[in-house]
């Protein structure tokens, strides 16, 4: 699949945003504010909002006719994209009310805060699930049409949230609880294993072959003529390929940047007296770039079945 930059940026950046928001809420509800001062808390919230919004905005960049983007809320009955849109819209007032309730109650976790916070946390997961289902619902892309996709999206969203949250705390001069570093390590490790398994999974042949595409299931089928000389929309969109070397390199980079480096850094943080800011920054940056690359590969390795009509055997 052709990886549209705006979609990569959207899913990863808003993932960080929702993740950070979710962690901020969870920590508040479970153990009280980790921040020394109120402003730091507000700034963290603000950053989360900005990340979410950057993501959402960039998602409209790949639309060929953005003036109709508002109509995307219409088909929540069947469309995961529509559902994502509706929930994303819903998320703002709820998250803002949560912050407002905290603020009004001088950062005391009231029942209202509990309720709103819990809703927000759940919504974060549901929303991420919806985003993932946009891809996972496509029967046309065997590499996406799997439960692995929503699981992965949720995993990465909460993982990036944990790293972002840790950075937020460290940047305020604090040190997160060891549980946070442990969570980061566990999630990184899970992500690593998950991704390794996914790489094997995407290599599996699909049951949709050039033979089932053309109905000739009892003989070899070869594409002879595409019917057009230059690449068309279908080939540009669905038959976007990179060389095997680039692909192998990208896989290694994803594992290293998104998971191994943050894992090592988080383990080091855990073993330190006080957390290091530069290590926290490095972890987040590596993870961000790593996940962007992960999302890019997610597209590159997705083989839309239209490619069978263009000669791909399976």
């Amino acid at each position: 699949m052709h990886p549209a930059l705006s979609i990569l940026v959207f899913t990863v950046t808003s993932g960080f945003g929702y993740g950070l928001m979710t962690l901020l809420i969870l920590s508040q509800l479970l153990g009280g504010s980790p921040f020394a001062n109120v402003n730091a808390y507000l700034i963290a919230f603000f950053v989360a909002f900005v990340l979410m919004s950057i993501g959402l905005l960039s998602s409209t960049f790949h639309l060929a006719n953005p003036k109709n983007a508002w109509r995307a809320f219409n088909r929540f009955r069947t469309s995961w994209l529509s559902r994502e849109g509706v929930l994303a819209l819903l998320y703002y007032p709820i998250a803002l009310s949560y912050v407002a309730v905290l603020w009004i109650n001088e950062w005391q976790t009231t029942v209202a805060a509990y309720v709103l916070g819990a809703v927000c946390v759940v919504l974060g997961f549901v929303l991420t699930h919806c985003t993932a289902m946009i891809y996972a619902s496509l029967k046309t892309i065997p590499q996406w049409h799997t439960r692995r996709v929503p699981i992965g999206f949720c995993l990465f969203f909460i993982y990036s949230g944990v790293l972002a949250y840790a950075l937020a705390v460290v940047s305020e001069g604090g040190s997160p609880l060891s549980a946070v570093w442990i969570a980061a390590c566990v999630l990184a490790l899970t992500g690593l294993v998950f991704k390794l398994k996914y790489f094997t999974f995407v290599g599996e042949p699909s049951k949709t072959t050039i033979n089932t595409a053309t109905t000739f299931t009892e003989a070899t089928v070869r594409l002879f003529d595409t019917g057009h000389s230059a690449e068309n929309f279908l080939q540009k969109e669905f038959a976007y390929v990179v060389g095997p070397k680039t692909q192998a390199l990208a896989r290694k980079a994803v594992l290293a940047l998104a998971f191994i480096v943050p894992l090592v850094l988080s383990a080091l943080q855990f073993s330190r007296e006080s957390s290091s800011l530069s290590m926290a920054i490095a972890a987040v940056l590596c993870c961000y770039v790593g996940l962007l690359l992960e999302r890019w590969l997610f597209f590159i390795e997705a083989k839309h079945v239209v490619r069978r009509f263009y000669g791909e055997q399976y």
Binding site: L63, N68, L81, T140, F233, E237, V306
Partner: peptide, 23 residues
């Protein structure tokens, strides 16, 4: 239509094409 391509992604038969000029 907002030109998001999603329907083309969902079509196994390559029956949908985005018109770049019309969006």
């Amino acid at each position: 239509c907002m030109g998001c391509n999603l329907c083309a992604w969902a079509c196994p038969y390559g029956a949908r094409e985005l018109d770049h000029d019309q969006g």
